[in-house]
Design a protein around this nucleic acid. Structure first.
Length: 450
RNA sequence: GGUCUCAUCGUCUAACGGUUAGGACAGCGCCCUUUCACGGCGUAAAUCCGGGUUCGAUUCCCGGUGAGAUCACCA
C-alpha cells in the first residue's frame, strides 16, 4: 500500500533537465534556459537534472564541461542528478538496433560530406511523412508536416548516435516530463516526436522559451560579444543578481517589484507568465540590478568582495571607505576601472598645486586662513564618524564661505577636481594623515606666488 | 526560398474586452551638493498596418507587413 502510494507520488513528480553541449563557453542566454528549468522544477518540487550533451566527440571539450559545472555552482543552481550523454551509448545503440530491426530506420551507404570521397554508413530514420502536432505550454498548438524533413540522419554509425536519437532516448530513460528549451529547438521537436513514436515512448511536455537577443535582434551568441557567465563572476557580479536578471528576460511576475532573491523567484515562478517574443539582453539593466543586490549584501560580504579588488589597501581604510565605494560602483570589478582616479589618493599622497587649492571666487590669503581654521576645528573634533566631522566642520564652513573652506580642504586631501566629499575623506584618512595633508597644502600656498 | 515562431515607450515589460495604456532601465530636467558620486522629485516616450467580431478592442479572428528561428554526417 505504502509502495503504491509512493509510486503515485513518483509518477506525478516533475522531472526537468538542462542539457547543454560542452562545445564552447556558454553565455547568459544559454544559462537563462537553465534558470527557467531550475525555477520550474523547484517551484513544483520536481527533479532537476544536468545532462551534458557530448555526443559530438570532435567538438566536446572537457574544459567546457568544467566551465558549465563551475558556472552552475557559482550561480547556486543545484541539480539532483548529473549525466553525460556519452555514458549512455549502450542504450542508444540498443534503441538504434531496434529501430533498424523494425524497419523504422535503415543503414545508408553514402559518400562522406567532408569531400574525401570515402563511403560511409549512416543510420537514417524512416520518415513516415505525417503531420506532427504538439502542444507547447507557451505557444499552444504547433503543427508541422514532416514530409520535407526527409529520412533524416539519426546516427553516424550504430555506435555514434546523433542529437535527435540521443535526446529522445535519454529524456525517456531519465523520466523527463517537461522539456524547457530555447525557441530555436521548435523545428527539432517534430523529428524527436517521430522518434518517440517509433520507439513507443510517451511524449514529454514542451515549453519553448523566447530567445535572448543581442542589440541587432538576432540570437545572442559568443561571436556577438556575449560573455561566458564565469566572466561575470570574475568581474565581481553577484550570482543572485544574474539569476534575477536572467529570470526577467522573457518572464515577469507582474507587479512592480523587480528585485528578487532566488528563493523568492522559486516561489512565484510560473510558466504562464512567460513572454512569447524574444528579448534583447540589456547590459545597463543588468548593472542596475546588480547594484541593487550589491546594496543589500551584508557589510561583511561587501568588505570581502571589495578587498578582492583593493587587496593592496589597508583593511581599516577599506572599512571606512566601504559605504562610499559601494555608492560608486554597480559591480565589484568596477573598482578596477575607477580606483586610480577615485580611490588612489586614499593610500597615496596626492600631488597638489597651489592654484587649484584656491576656490574660484577666493584668494591665497583667505585660503590659507581657512585651512588653518579647519586644522583648528579638526584638532578639537572626534574623527569617529563622518557625521561627527561634518557637524563640527560645517558651522565653520558656513561662517567663512562653504566654497572657500570646503573646496581647498577637499583638494588638499584628494588632489582631485572631482572626488568624494571632504568629511568622508577626513574620516577615511583619520587625523594624522589628514592633518599632514592640510599642513602640506598650507606650506605649498605660502610658497606660491599668485 | 521552404517550414515554424513572434509583434505595447529606445530596451525589459504590466494589462488577461471597458485604464488619463502602469512600472523599471536608459535619456532629459529640477532639487540636494564646494566638486564627483549617491539620493529625491519630475518629464518625454509605445499598442506595426488593414479588415472583421463586439455597445466597446492593446486584448479575440482573418489578411498584410516586419522581425527572428530553422532547414548538418552540430546540438
Amino acid at each position: 500500500m505504502l509502495n503504491k502510494l509512493k509510486n503515485i507520488f513518483n509518477d506525478k513528480k516533475i522531472v526537468v533537465r538542462f542539457a547543454p553541449s560542452p562545445t564552447g563557453l556558454l553565455h547568459l542566454g544559454n544559462y537563462r534556459t537553465a534558470v527557467f528549468a531550475y525555477l520550474y522544477a523547484r517551484k513544483n518540487g520536481g527533479k532537476f537534472i544536468l545532462r551534458i550533451e557530448d555526443t559530438d566527440r570532435e567538438r566536446s571539450k572537457k574544459e567546457y564541461e568544467e566551465n558549465i559545472i563551475e558556472s552552475l555552482k557559482w550561480l547556486n543552481i543545484d541539480y539532483d542528478n548529473f549525466y553525460r550523454q556519452s555514458e549512455n551509448l549502450t542504450s542508444h545503440t540498443k534503441h538504434l538496433k531496434k529501430l533498424i530491426e523494425e524497419g523504422k530506420a535503415f543503414i545508408s551507404k553514402e559518400e562522406a560530406k567532408d569531400g574525401s570521397g570515402i563511403m560511409r554508413e549512416l543510420v537514417r530514420f524512416k520518415n513516415p511523412n505525417k503531420d506532427v502536432i504538439f502542444n507547447d505550454i507557451i505557444r499552444g498548438e504547433i503543427k508541422t508536416n514532416t514530409t520535407d524533413l526527409g529520412d533524416f540522419v539519426i546516427a553516424k554509425s550504430i555506435t555514434e548516435p546523433l542529437f535527435h536519437l540521443a535526446v529522445v532516448v535519454d529524456d525517456y530513460e531519465e523520466g523527463v516530463t517537461h522539456i524547457l528549451r530555447g525557441e530555436d529547438h521548435i523545428p527539432n521537436t517534430p523529428r524527436q516526436i517521430l522518434i518517440q513514436e517509433a520507439l513507443g515512448f510517451p511524449h514529454p511536455t514542451y515549453a519553448h522559451l523566447p530567445l535572448v537577443l543581442s542589440e541587432d535582434r538576432t540570437k545572442l551568441s559568443k561571436r556577438k560579444g556575449a560573455l561566458p557567465v564565469t566572466a561575470y563572476r570574475d568581474i565581481g557580479y553577484l550570482p543572485e543578481a544574474l539569476i534575477n536578471f536572467m529570470a526577467f528576460i522573457g518572464w515577469n511576475p507582474g507587479g512592480e517589484k523587480e528585485i528578487f532573491s532566488k528563493e523568492e523567484l522559486v516561489k512565484i515562478f510560473d510558466l504562464s507568465d512567460i513572454q512569447k517574443g524574444g528579448a534583447i539582453f540589456n547590459e545597463e539593466k543588468l548593472k542596475w540590478m546588480n547594484k541593487e543586490h550589491l546594496k543589500k549584501e551584508s557589510k561583511d560580504k561587501q568588505f570581502s568582495n571589495i578587498k578582492k579588488f583593493l587587496s593592496e589597501y589597508d583593511d581599516g581604510i577599506i572599512k571606512r571607505a566601504q559605504d562610499t565605494i559601494i555608492e560608486r560602483i554597480s559591480y565589484y570589478g568596477e573598482i578596477d576601472l575607477i580606483k586610480e582616479n577615485e580611490f588612489e589618493f586614499l593610500i597615496k599622497r596626492p600631488k597638489i598645486t597651489g592654484d587649484k587649492l584656491v576656490w574660484k571666487t577666493s584668494n591665497k590669503e583667505k585660503t590659507i586662513a581657512n585651512l588653518i581654521g579647519v586644522l583648528d576645528v579638526l584638532s578639537k573634533t572626534s574623527l569617529e564618524s563622518i557625521d561627527s566631522i561634518k557637524n563640527n566642520l560645517m558651522p565653520y564652513a558656513e561662517k567663512n564661505g562653504k566654497g572657500d573652506v570646503l573646496w581647498p580642504l577637499r583638494f588638499a586631501l584628494s588632489g582631485q577636481d572631482k572626488s568624494m566629499d571632504p568629511f568622508t575623506i577626513c574620516y577615511i584618512l583619520q587625523s594624522v594623515e589628514a592633518k599632514e595633508r592640510i599642513e602640506n597644502a598650507i606650506k605649498l600656498l605660502n610658497q606660491t606666488t599668485m
